Simulated assay, not measured.
Amino acid sequence: MPTDAAPSAAATAPVLGPRALNRALLDRQLLLRRAELSAEEAVEHLAGVHAQVPKVPYYALWARLAGFRPEALSELLAGRRTVRISLQRSTLHLVTARDCLAFRPVLQEMQDRRYRGTFGKRMAGVDLTRLAEAARALVEERPLTFGELGTALAELWPEREPLALSMAARTALPLVQVPPRGLWGRGGLARHTTVRQWLGEEPGEPTAQGVEALVLRCLTAFGPASVRDVQVWSGLTRLRGVVDGLRPRLRTFRDEHGVELFDVQDGALPDPGTPAPVRFLPEYDNLFLSHHDRTRVIADAYRKRIWQGNQAFSPVLVDGFIRAVWRIDRNGDTAALAVEPFEPLSRAEREAIGAEGSRLLDFAAPDASHDIRLAPH
């Protein structure tokens, strides 16, 4: 029996097939129709946007919001209404200032665990409290890159690797990446300071209520989901007891394999036959990173087509599922959108890809002439 199945409850819960789960996910991810939300409202609704690559949040919000202007998100970053910080899965996310303060304490244990797994032996014997104090003084004096921070800390711990020292500081301190890094059309090194310095407030201590709130945020944005799905999205472990404690506030379903799924009471469940428009998503979009079972958005046979080693490819949703990848090649005054399908597409699907691709080029390269190359399958 699947590990997420609860025999007494899952056996009688309604079954949701892949298309039902797909349409629920698309609705909550604002991908069935472009939403009339501000950039700030959307970032909070989505419980954060993956931001390891600076451009990703802009493409993610363009795909989801009506009339999205990249300058609107840049203004939020420059105005400290949103921040880029290591959160879920110990990866960089763009979140609202409020969610930064709420999420980071809950995810601290996961940050610590992942750091120990990578650098623990190399940092044995180092007083991490002292290191955090030294790092705080350095980055609050002026934002530093991790290279600069590691070099400065190595003056105090000369026998340790600068990288291990800077990663210890990143783990022990909530560090935000500061602009101009992350601004639309701007470059800049990835420099960091503390949340306290940047937002004027320190994240609090982790609480059981904070963990429950994070689980509910995940279900709201990505549900219905299994316990394992929530753990994949967050990077946290041992959440079965937390979810069980929330049962009186949740609905339960099961997937076609009998795995128990949980959901908030008011979570949208569109008809599985609801039309889903073509959407171009950026690499690392949380849509396809946030579930253990990803068949609700991509067939297992295609998973390696969008993720190879540490390289991710930008996916195209066709009828709600990832069925192609895309890239934009810029050559002088020409921007060419290349789309590579995984399987044969109907004439209507190819036309829809062309129409949405034209809108993508208008957004990504408004100053260039455009070309769309949809490869045959």
Rank of each mutant, 00 (worst) to 15 (best):
P2R: 12
A9H: 05
A9V: 15
A9F: 07
A9P: 01
A11I: 05
A11H: 08
T12F: 01
G17P: 03
A24S: 15
L26Y: 02
L32Y: 09
E40K: 11
H45S: 12
A47K: 00
P54I: 03
Y58T: 10
L61W: 05
L61V: 10
W62E: 11
W62G: 08
L65V: 13
F68E: 10
E71F: 02
A72T: 11
L73F: 15
L73N: 13
E75K: 02
E75P: 00
V83N: 07
R84L: 02
I85N: 06
L92C: 07
H93E: 10
C100G: 13
V106T: 15
E109T: 13
E109C: 04
M110F: 05
M110V: 01
Y115C: 04
Y115V: 02
A124H: 06
G125Q: 03
D127C: 08
R130H: 12
A135E: 06
V139D: 01
E140K: 01
T145P: 09
F146N: 13
G147R: 15
G147L: 12
E148D: 12
A152I: 03
L153K: 03
E155K: 14
E155N: 03
E159C: 08
L163H: 05
A164E: 01
A164M: 01
S166R: 03
A169L: 04
T171N: 08
A172C: 08
V178F: 08
P179Y: 05
P180H: 13
G182T: 14
W184A: 13
R186I: 04
L189E: 15
L189R: 14
T207E: 03
L219Y: 07
A221S: 15
F222C: 01
P224N: 04
S226D: 08
S234G: 04
L236V: 04
R238L: 06
L246A: 10
R249T: 06
L250T: 06
F253L: 05
E256A: 15
D263I: 01
G267H: 06
G267Y: 01
A268I: 07
D271R: 03
A276L: 06
P282Q: 10
S290W: 09
T295M: 10
R296L: 14
R303C: 00
K304D: 12
Q308K: 12
A312R: 07
S314M: 13
F321N: 00
R323P: 05
W326M: 10
R330A: 14
A336C: 11
A338F: 09
A338H: 14
F342Y: 06
L345E: 02
L345Y: 09
A352N: 05
I353W: 02
I353N: 04
E356I: 07
G357W: 09
L361K: 12
P366T: 05
H370F: 06
I372M: 02
I372Y: 03
